[in-house]
Structures are given as structure tokens and as C-alpha cells.
Simulated assay, not measured.
Amino acid sequence: MRIALFITCFNDTMFPATGRAVVGLLERLGHTVEFPRTQACCGQMHYNTGYQAQTLSMVRGFAESFAGYEAVVTPSGSCAGMIREHHRSVARKYGDPALRDAVERVAPRVYELSELLVDVLGVTDLGSYFPHRVTYHPTCHSLRMLGVGDRPLSLLRAVRGIDLVELPDATSCCGFGGTFALKNADTSNAMLADKMRHVQSTGAELLTAGDNSCLMHIGGGLSRLRTGIGTLHLAEILASTESSAGSSRAPTPEGAPQ
């Protein structure tokens, strides 16, 4: 299968290890992953902030960069949702017929990581090993827009050595929401406080999710409280093996106690 990686601007800028984990994981399964160098932002920040017409060039660029691939994988339910759902609406409203056709060909082939692994490649046991107590936060776009359901949990349950604990009120939003956290800081912080309380109640060493944006928001709060709880993207847990157990310990969020 010809697979392309859409790293997203957020991961490319701040969490490149997640992209490397995705590639390493898929290569371990016998697949070759290509990285189109013309890729750029999917336009979600602009779209959600009201600049929908201005996303047209980004929609066009994405369709051109990823044309011809059988599957496009991204370690972000948020960006996958933007592409699958909103690129079509932008193309229909502001684009020409050629762009609409190009988006209709590409958008359905874009998958969040757990969707690609479980639904397309048909695997849940990836030979992963991660001997830590972990809890999982289902991010809003992956849960509500993509409907990933228990796919991430089925992958985590197959990880050897993991102590996977349920997160209370898991489906509640963490309060990030991109620019929402900036424009509505008080509301965002109240939602974050609830989420952090639930994370701490699990006794987990680590919180994982399919979006580094949410993990950064929650991890930042946990760091400021000096809880000692780390955050790590789902891809990085799944990429860990017994041979790398010595280095599988999650990085401590900035500002957290060592």
C-alpha cells in the first residue's frame, strides 16, 4: 500500500518525535511511508476562526500534495477531521469543479492513525511493549467528528506490560479547542481543571491521546501543578518495543519535576 504521512504543522513544529514514531511503527509492519515535502497546514486554525475563504489555497495545496496515494495517515484526529469534513465544504463553496473533484478523491483516504491501523491494515497487536500505568483521553474531533470509538483502546490493550486504567468522564472536552483556549481562557481553564482532576484520580504515570494539541494543553496544566504526570502521544507508545524498553519512559513535560 502506498501510504503518505501528513505530519501536521503542530507536530512538525513542536512534536516531531510523534511523526518519527508513526513512520517507525508502519515500517515495522512492512509498509513504506512517503513524505510529500510540499505539504503545509490543513487550514483548520483559519477555518475555525472564521477565515473560511482564506483556507482555499491550503485545501488546494493538500489535494495536490497527496494526490495518488492509497492512504494518508496523520497523528491528529483534529486535522483528519478538518480534511475529511471541512475541505469538502470549502471546495464546494469557494473552489472550481476541478478542485472539488480532487478533494473528493483525496479526503476519504485520510485516516487518523488508529483508523488506519485497525480498519485499513487490520491490526491491533503491534508487538508493542510499554511497562507503565497509562490512561487515555479521547479527543473531541476523534471522538465526535471521526467516530474512532474504541480503536485507540483496542490498540493500547494489546500493548505488553501496560497498566491501562480508565479515565473518569473521559469524553468531556479538555478545554483546548485551538483558538478557543485563547479567546475563552476562563472557560478553557475551568474545563482543564476538571480534566486534570480526573487524570490525577487514576494514579497514572502518563496520559495518552491521539492529538498532541490536547496533550500539550493538559500536560501544561499538570506541569504547572507539579503532578509528575507525563503525556505521550499514542503513536509513541505503540512504537515502543521490548528492545527499546530502556528508553520507553515518557519525556517529562516542560516544567514538571524530574
Rank of each mutant, 00 (worst) to 15 (best):
F180N: 08
G50C: 09
T38F: 05
R37Y: 14
D150L: 12
A209S: 14
M216N: 08
A98W: 09
L143M: 11
L207Y: 02
S142P: 01
S247Y: 12
E85Q: 15
R60Y: 12
L143S: 12
K93E: 14
T135C: 12
R100I: 06
Y51M: 10
D125H: 13
L113G: 04
D150Y: 07
Y47M: 03
L56N: 06
R2L: 10
S247I: 12
R100H: 10
Q39W: 09
G228A: 08
T135W: 02
A21F: 06
V22R: 00
G149K: 07
Q52P: 07
D119W: 07
A235M: 02
Q200E: 15
V106M: 09
G50P: 10
G81E: 02
T139P: 09
R105Q: 12
F15H: 06
T55R: 00
I162K: 01
N11M: 08
F10T: 02
A80C: 13
A71V: 10
G203S: 11
D96S: 11
T18Y: 02
R20W: 11
P16S: 09
R157I: 11
V59L: 06
T135P: 04
L117C: 11
A71P: 10
A204D: 01
L215S: 00
E70D: 15
A250Q: 06
L25W: 00
L116T: 03
H132K: 05
L232D: 01
A181N: 14
S154H: 12
S89D: 11
D150N: 14
V123Q: 14
G122R: 04
L116S: 06
P108M: 07
L238H: 02
G175T: 03
G177M: 04
V165E: 01
A256Q: 09
T231V: 15
K93C: 09
C140I: 08
C9A: 05
A53M: 13
G50I: 05
A4Y: 04
P257R: 15
G50R: 10
G175M: 04
D125E: 13
S78C: 11
S89V: 13
L155I: 07
D211G: 10
G203D: 05
L206R: 02
G95E: 07
K93S: 14
G230M: 05
Q258D: 15
A185S: 15
M45R: 05
P16K: 03
E34Q: 09
E85P: 03
M58R: 05
E85A: 12
T13V: 11
T241L: 00
T227W: 00
A17F: 08
T124A: 13
A98Q: 14
G43R: 00
H46M: 15
I162C: 05
G246Y: 09
S78A: 15
P131L: 02
G177S: 08
V123A: 14
L99K: 09
E112D: 12
L222C: 06
A235Q: 01
